[in-house]
Structures are given as C-alpha cells and as structure tokens.
C-alpha cells in the first residue's frame, strides 16, 4: 500500500483527491492546508485525515508520496522539502515560477533518488492522447503547424492567480498546457519564440490575462498558442487543437463533442464521460485524465520508471513560457535555452 499526502484542497487538490480515492494500492493518509476549519471540512468530505503541521507528513514513514496542489509560488519550497524528506513528489503545473526554482526541484529529486513528476494533465486527456497516437503513427506525416486555443473566464476563485508574482499570469499558468503539448508532439524545445502577452481587461490586477505565443521548432514546424483569461464569465472553458502535417490534419474542440447535455432552469451543462471524475459503478470507464495521470505516476514508482513529465521534461515548457514573456517585453523574438 502506497501512502499519500495531498497538499492543498482547492480546485486541484480536491480533483486529485477524488482520483487518489479510486487508486488501487494507494491510501490517502493526510490532507494538508493552513486554514484548519476549511481543511477539516474538506477532509471530512473525502474521509481523510486533516493535517496542518507539514512535519507530521514529512516525518511519517508510511507516507511515500506527496502530491502538491498548492498555489504555484509555494511549489518550490514544498517540493524540495518533501524530496529531501525522501518522498516522491507529484506537483501541479507550472512546476515553478522561474528556472532557478525548477532546477532546485530537479536537483533535489536527483540527489534523493526520488521521482518528481509535474502534473501536465493534457498528456492524459483522451482526445489529446489520441492525437499524439495519430502523430506518432505517422498519420499526419511531418507536422508543419499546430494551433492551440485555451480559455475561459479568469480564475478569480482564488486571488493568488490574479497576481503575476504568484501565478506567473496566463502565459505561465495556462498557456503552459499547450506549450508542453506542442513540445511533446514536436519532440523537444522550440528554437524561437515570439509572443504578445498582456493585461487586456483585468486592469484591477497586475496580471497577464491574454497570451498569443508563436513557436518555431528546429524542424521548421511552427505553432501558435492562444491562452485567454479575458473572456466573459458566461464563457465555457474551452480548448481547441489543430495540427497540420504533410499527410493530413487533425482538429479537436472540447465544446463540439459533448455527448450529454442537461438543461436545468437558467443553466445548461455539458458532460463528457471521459473528463468526469470516474465513480465506480456510475461511470463505466476509468477515463478521467486526472485518474490516468496519477495512475501513471504510481506505476512509475512501482516499476521504477521515469515519469513522462519529470522535472527535466517539465522544465522545457516552463523555459518556453518564460521566453515568451521575455519576447513580449522586448517586442522581439527570443531563443529558448539556458
């Protein structure tokens, strides 16, 4: 039995918790947060033990895995402490806010011989996996361009998102999903980045809410990634992808193939079973991307394999997003490296 502690019980913490609860061979031994009352409420909902003292997690030998779902600016300290304490670490994306922090995490994992995986969940979405399979199977031929679109209302549910210093803004927080995906399908880092990353509508915050990032890969393949927090509150969270290649084109859009819709009063809700948390006996297939992502991490621990988005791999998308911010500030293309 692998003992697990989840740090943070917000949007991602509860999403991960739901997946951990279904994971065979794993047991959540603690949920951490600072605010005791709120923590206890969440912990009782998921039937896990609330822990406010981090050391009680780090010193507990039964806990092998620490899953970090706290705000981005807290990742580096929590991850390094957990790795130093001999835990395997799963950390939400973006792994950190700068490359110095990312490198500290990577070094700590290496030094302590522990797994570090960054939760780039897009690689576990069934539609994005299917596209990757098509690319790898040669169905598209040589990839020539990729268009990715991701957006919805700004994540104002938590104030820290709307602070550039804490979240990195829309480029580092949101565009990084598609940047990581573009790096995955193109086989590595882009050579050149050009971007416009701005505060469009949320003038009350110091944060970027719109990013338009152009990438050029060493093969000559190009990509454009739009990440958007500048949309009205009624806008459904949407992701789109289009990849063109010498032999064909793939397109996907999470708003089109909604197999189940429900109207209740003034609200319409759409459901795709693949992206709902899997409930045994309720949903027939364990296709939830968060479940798959965490399953992958668990298998990497059991089989001593390298996670698909380990520290080094995740560092690439962070480096690219930071280069994009730099390009936007300079008004010129930037080479990715360092």
């Amino acid at each position: 039995m692998i003992g697990v502690a989840v740090l943070g019980y917000g949007f991602m913490g509860t999403t991960h918790l739901a997946a951990w609860k279904m994971m065979e061979g794993c047991s959540v031994l603690g949920l951490w947060g600072r605010n005791r009352a709120k923590l206890e409420e969440a912990a009782s909902r998921y039937g896990v033990e609330p822990i406010t003292e981090l050391d009680n997690i780090l010193k507990n030998d039964k806990i092998e895995v620490v899953d970090i779902c706290t705000p981005t600016y807290t990742h580096v300290e929590l991850a390094v402490r957990a790795l130093e304490a001999g835990k395997h670490v799963l950390v939400e994306k973006p792994m950190a806010l700068n490359l110095g922090e990312a490198d500290r995490m990577i070094r700590a994992a290496r030094k302590n011989g522990r797994k570090l995986m960054v939760a780039h969940v897009l690689r576990f979405f069934p539609e994005y996996m299917r596209v990757k399979e098509l690319v790898d199977g040669g169905h598209l031929g040589e990839i020539t361009s990729l268009r990715a679109w991701r957006g919805g209302p700004a994540p104002e549910w938590s104030p820290w998102f709307m602070d550039l210093e804490k979240s990195g803004g829309v480029a580092v927080d949101l565009a990084i999903h598609d940047v990581d995906y573009a790096i995955w399908v193109n086989g590595g880092l882009p050579s050149r980045v050009y971007a416009k990353i701005v505060n469009l509508v949320h003038k009350e915050y110091r944060v970027h809410d719109f990013a338009l990032i152009t990438l050029r890969f060493p093969t000559g393949s190009i990509a454009v990634i739009e990440a958007n927090w500048a949309l009205p509150k009624t806008y459904p969270f949407t992701m789109k992808l289009e990849i063109d290649g010498s032999k064909g084109v793939v397109q996907l859009d999470n708003q089109t193939p909604i197999p189940l819709k429900m109207w209740t009063g003034d609200k319409v809700e759409g459901f795709a079973p693949e992206t709902l948390p899997w409930k045994p006996g309720v949903h027939p297939f364990p296709l939830d991307p968060f479940y798959r992502e965490i399953r992958h991490f668990v298998e990497c621990i059991i089989q001593d394999r390298k996670p698909i988005t380990d520290g080094e791999e995740a560092r690439k998308s962070l480096a690219t997003c930071l280069a994009a911010v730099e390009s936007s500030e300079k008004g010129a293309p930037v080479t990715v490296g360092g």
């Binding site: 040589e142 020539t144 361009s145 152009t214 050029r216 190009i222 010498s246």
Partner: peptide
C-alpha cells in the same frame, strides 16, 4: 514565421503564422 511546407514539392511557402 514561415514554417516548413506541408507540401514540400512546392516552390513557394504554404505554412505561416
């Protein structure tokens, strides 16, 4: 950015952003 061509046989570019 003009990318590599989807149709490499063309004399002219076919992909750009």
């Amino acid at each position: 950015e003009i990318g590599r061509n989807a149709n490499p046989k063309l004399q002219v570019e076919d992909s750009f952003l």
